[in-house]
Computed example of a mutant assay.
Amino acid sequence: MSVIDLGGTFSAWERAPVKPASLHLVNLMDPPADLPSWARADTGDATELPKAIMKGGYDLVYSNAVIEHVGGHIRRERFADNVRALADRHWVQVPYRYFPIEPHVLFPGFQFLPVATRRLIISHWPLVHTAPRDRLHALRDAMEVELLSVTEMRYYFPTSRIRYERMGGLIKSIIAIGAPKAP
Rank of each mutant, 00 (worst) to 15 (best):
A131P: 07
R75T: 02
V61W: 08
L147R: 14
E146S: 15
E102I: 01
G44W: 01
F112Y: 07
V115F: 03
Y164G: 10
R161S: 15
A65S: 14
L120H: 12
N82I: 08
V115Q: 09
R140N: 13
H124V: 04
R89D: 07
W38R: 14
W125T: 00
P126T: 08
G57R: 00
W125E: 03
I121K: 00
V83M: 12
G71W: 08
Q93H: 07
A33E: 15
V94C: 11
H90T: 14
E152Q: 03
I74G: 12
A80D: 04
V105L: 06
P103W: 04
L120F: 15
Y96E: 04
E152Y: 03
Y96A: 15
R89Y: 10
F99D: 01
A131S: 09
D34E: 15
P100M: 11
L60A: 07
L86H: 02
Q93I: 06
I162F: 00
S149I: 14
L28V: 14
A142Y: 11
I53D: 00
R84V: 01
L25P: 10
N27K: 03
A52K: 10
P31K: 01
E48A: 11
V145G: 08
M143A: 03
L148S: 04
A138C: 09
L35R: 13
V26I: 07
I162N: 13
A80T: 08
H104R: 15
V26A: 06
V92W: 01
G44E: 06
R140F: 14
S37K: 14
R140V: 14
D134W: 07
L49N: 05
R163D: 11
E144L: 11
I122C: 06
T43N: 04
F157W: 05
